[in-house]
Write a protein that binds this DNA or RNA. Structure first.
Length: 530
RNA sequence: GGGCCGCUAGCUCAAUGGUAGAGCAGCUGACUCUUAAUCAGCUGGUUCAGGGUUCGAGCCCCUGGCGGCUCACCA
């Protein structure tokens, strides 16, 4: 059974699926795995008639702890402040740093992917008092929280430590404050210059009532509090959090012991590596989630994540064969879903994977699967030949006009092909007419040379102007010389492209200057031995 | 140092303990019209290594190797 269906089948009663994100800067494609994975679970639940809410939270009251997108003196000014209070980068109209990177850039990828969770912002939940009951419990049971840190992670906290960060009334930082002495009404805190090495507190100390957004629970407690607040029953997380003794285990224990609630079902998922390496912001395009959206159509992004089990590490190498390979595999599974014959063996539940990959959850998978999809590598080649009407040509290959959706798929693929060829494609996918006679011509046989000489003469006489005319001439000349057409084509590719194969030769030659073509054919034939 | 996950064909990945597979790449052949298309076929493996359990192990157990992550701060 498909992994999301297994999860759904085990669920009892109404479900609340939650996922969340700390908005500390540009969001990597890897984070889309969580989004897509949770969506797949939600869809599987709803298909079974299970009443399901899908929530997505932004932890924007967390302190700014990485300076990646801050510059100059704003680093000193904003580090340690809640992300909801840090201004958006210059040029952005967003209300805060968090709203810019997650609210605008990252979440813009959701709708195209067919993902529509209810979105909440923790800064608002804290401010409106929703979290206050949990803050009170956590403070009352601070000793239990300390025990859990000790037992689960072998971390020893100070005797007077409290699982909360006060937002300093003077400087506005929360990452730099140390809270102590909960008396049931207020807590004492001090904002320390040296509490953490990534931000400097102002030195203020005082007492505050830690409610209504004036304080934030520490990460693990905050997570567990959210589960109680929203009644979360299923929430996966990346493997970095899911390790033994790690964050998830601490939060699970806090949920049970402090908030008296069974933690949600965990689905831990692996990372998406780029070119075999961990993702890195310095690598540029294709790494951030919003750039990824320009490099793959939405259903391919879903497919990338949903065809593999969550625990499977994925490798996405935009410079390798990952992209064309994904398209090929997707097309094969689409065809299989439509009941069309496909070559080779299929993965288990191909139609289920295909359905999960569709943007529209309600779409008819058989209808979608039957649509004409141009093979990616073929398309990459076609668009490199000047003067080809790609849409007309593919309609001819399909055998009937493309419908509206098929035209849309085609245009989307053409666009992606262009970007891929421009930035990532391996050289063997690039076709380029050589400005000098390629050296590979030396390996041609005498009959091939003779063929090109004959073809040059014939072309001078007939002056073929169209791809069709050229193609016809190429075949006729080969037949007249009693030469296998493949053999003849190989000579032409060697002479113009310096390789053994290429796009349809007639259209290639028709796109070039007539004089250049004839001259090149004669030069390549020139070394003819007799 | 402890823990978790992974390691299967050149690449990307499948395989309820029951004959190790597919796609792509590669190679061979066909084709007067999709010549990087399509069609037919072929090659390709000590399943990281070594033990063990079993009638039978890619799968279960143990040991080791390699890679990633994590366990201190923070989130």
């Amino acid at each position: 059974m498909y992994w999301a269906d297994e999860i759904a089948a085990a669920a009892e009663g109404p479900q609340v699926v939650n996922d969340s994100k700390t908005p500390s800067g540009t969001v990597h494609v890897g984070s889309l795995r969580g989004v897509v994975l949770h969506d797949a679970i939600v869809r599987a639940l709803r298909e079974r008639g299970v009443e399901t809410r899908f929530l997505y939270g932004v932890d924007d009251l967390d302190p700014m702890d990485a300076a990646a997108h801050l510059t100059g003196d704003s680093v000193e000014r904003y580090m340690g402040m809640p992300l909801a209070m840090v201004p958006a980068p210059e040029g952005s109209g967003a209300a805060s740093y968090a709203r810019h990177f997650v609210g605008e850039l990252f979440m813009a990828t959701f709708a195209p992917l067919g993902v529509a969770p209810e979105i909440y912002w923790m800064s608002e939940r804290y401010a409106d008092g929703s979290v206050d009951p949990y803050i009170r419990v956590a403070l009352d049971r601070a000793d239990l929280v300390r025990d859990i840190y000790r037992r689960v992670s072998h971390v020893e906290k100070r005797e007077d430590w409290l699982p909360i960060s006060i937002i300093c009334e003077v400087c506005g930082r929360s990452g730099t404050t140390l809270a102590t002495d909960w008396n049931g009404h207020t807590v004492a805190y001090s904002c320390r210059p040296d509490l953490v090495d990534w931000a400097k507190g102002c030195g203020h100390s005082g007492r505050v009532i830690p409610f209504k957004g004036r304080a934030k629970l520490k990460w693990n407690v905050d997570w567990a509090a959210k589960w109680s607040l929203f009644g979360v029953t299923i929430e996966g997380c990346g493997k970095d959090l899911a390790t033994a003794g790690g964050s998830r285990e601490r939060s699970d224990a806090i949920a049970r012991d402090v908030f008296d609630r069974e933690p949600p079902l965990n689905v831990s998922y692996e990372f998406l590596n780029i070119g075999g390496k961990k993702m890195s912001t310095s690598k540029g395009l294709g790494v951030s989630a919003h750039d990824m959206a320009a490099l793959l159509p939405p259903e391919l992004i879903r497919f990338l994540f949903l065809r593999s089990k969550p625990r499977r590490a994925l490798d996405f190498d935009p410079e390798g064969d990952t992209i064309p390979g994904l398209f090929d595999e997707f097309d094969r599974i689409a065809a299989a879903t439509a009941g069309l014959p496909v070559r080779g063996e299929l993965p288990p539940d191909p139609d289920r994977i295909f359905r999960a990959s569709l943007v529209d959850a309600a779409a008819d998978a058989a209808v979608e699967g039957a649509r004409f999809r141009p093979p990616f590598r073929h398309l990459a080649l076609l668009i490199q030949v000047p003067g080809v009407d790609v849409e007309a040509r593919l309609a001819a290959e399909k055998g009937s006009p493309l419908d509206e959706r098929e035209t849309e798929i085609l245009r989307e693929r053409v666009e992606i092909c262009r970007r891929w060829l421009a930035a990532f494609a391996p050289d063997r996918y690039r076709v380029e007419v050589q400005s000098e006679v390629p050296s590979s011509v030396a390996e041609l046989d005498p009959p091939q040379r003779a063929y090109m000489a004959t073809l040059a003469d014939a072309a001078d006489g007939e002056r073929p102007a169209s791809g069709d005319a050229w193609q016809d001439l190429i075949f006729r000349t080969a037949k007249a010389a009693d030469m296998a057409s493949g053999y003849a084509f190989a000579a032409i590719y060697a002479a113009f492209l310096g390789r053994a194969n290429g796009p349809r030769a007639g259209w290639l030659l028709a796109s070039l200057e007539h004089a250049f073509v004839v001259e090149r054919l004669r030069s390549a034939a020139g070394g003819q031995r007799t």
